[in-house]
Design a protein around this nucleic acid. Structure first.
Lengths: 172, 172
DNA sequence: GGGAAATCCTTGAAGCCTAAACTAATAGGG
DNA sequence: CCCTATTAGTTTAGGCTTCAAGGATTTCCC
């Protein structure tokens, strides 16, 4: 899919616009949220590929590791990235094969693999990260600072709402 | 990944919270947006699987078709769903194999495959759709109506911002 | 100590997804 | 009419993702 396709798309949320109002407000909100995320994510994916020949999951994994001086266990990474364990295993293996990340045994617990960036990985991530941040700023440039602040706050409220619904569900 | 993992996760956005402020506001906003979407999407995926033994992409494709009395071409579906052409081909084939969707030739243009829900597909989707809408309402229940309205409006602004950035990029 | 339960990670099967190359068909301009 | 460009859809290779099952290790607790 080209950027042009993206830009001219009548997305799912827009397609719902003529539905009877009042009833599906939450649904419309969700679809708009999803559309925003998909638009940004797709563009970031494309640019990561074009500029750095990498992928968003790779970038995300390296971003998670970047601040962890002593590395992270695969389980920690998996929780941070909100993906499955098996997913991280494969991702880490590919990054390891490229020399960007290294596995290291954890002294004292032989079940645990500790993951950390290599020097090469840190160099690569520094370049990617700077570009990534600029891209995001570019894409969200059309919002006024106070709009961004309000949006940030409301998304925080939304996150709370979802997490609350999820934890209630566990203990019915 | 269990819902518990999700709920207890220190996500990427939270992990960034102690970074020097002011500089990475857009990035933080983006990460929060992504976290919200990921949380909701993951839960919807899980429930679709558990309750209906289906997937989100299948559901989305059927949702796109539901309003189209005369069906949609694969290309239209691909633009609506913001996914690649090849993706829709495979998705449609799987749904067709399950008897939920049918391909039909378009009179007058032999390149075009028109896709539509079968009667069985409409029945299935009606059940799934009702549940889906209730799930979304449940997850976003923690927001007050005026919060939802503001969030909806600001996400609209965000969408505009991103689309504007994307169309500018095409013509530099 | 020893056995059951929990934790960490990996593996395998199946589906999702993209980019790029390809086929087939249509449209436009000489 | 042909030649070219465009459009619709499929295919292929490779990567991402989940779920479920399983192996290894540790922890708990009697």
């Amino acid at each position: 899919m080209t950027p042009d396709d993206l830009a001219s798309t009548v997305d799912a949320e827009t397609a719902l616009a003529h539905a009877p109002p009042g009833h599906k407000d939450e649904l419309r909100l969700w679809l708009r949220l999803l559309t925003c995320t998909t638009l940004v994510e797709g563009e970031i994916r494309t640019r990561l590929r074009r500029h750095f020949d990498t992928t968003l999951p790779r970038f995300d994994l390296m971003a998670a590791l970047e601040r962890a001086k002593d590395g992270m266990t695969l389980g920690e990474v998996s929780r941070r990235m909100m993906v499955s364990n098996g997913n991280v295993t494969g991702l880490a293996s590919r990054l390891e094969a490229e020399g960007l990340v290294e596995r290291r045994a954890q002294p004292g617990d032989r079940r645990v693999q500790r993951l950390r960036l290599t020097a090469k990985g840190r160099r690569e991530f520094a370049r990617q990260s700077a570009a990534h941040e600029a891209w995001i700023a570019e894409l969200l440039d059309g919002l006024a600072p106070e709009e961004r602040a309000t949006l940030f706050r409301l998304l925080g409220r939304a996150k709370l709402s979802v997490r609350a619904a999820l934890t209630n569900e566990e203990t019915p």
